[in-house]
Amino acid sequence: MEELIEQLKKQIIEVLNLEDVTPADIENDAPLFGEGLGLDSIDALELIVMMEKEYGIKLKNPAEGKEIFKSINVMAQYVNEHRTK
């Protein structure tokens, strides 16, 4: 799981162009949206695309993202349970 968490952090930084952020800056339990990394609705859509592209997870309802992208820990747990690649 630790490996997946690190991988997700690197992918989020790359996909969302978080230029001044390092994996160490992203706390595993901190919220990704709002006060956390300050991500916005376009970032949420980009993460949905990333989930499908990298892990074969198709989120049919964008509202699901609200729960799944709560934190890196929650996201990693979801990826671990639902990934098809």
């Binding site: 969302l16 162009n17 376009i42 970032d43 859509l45 980009e46 695309v49 499908e52 592209k53």
Partner: peptide, 9 residues
């Protein structure tokens, strides 16, 4: 086929 929302905007 993975249209990028961040590029699209």
């Amino acid at each position: 086929y993975f249209p990028s929302p961040a590029v699209f905007v």
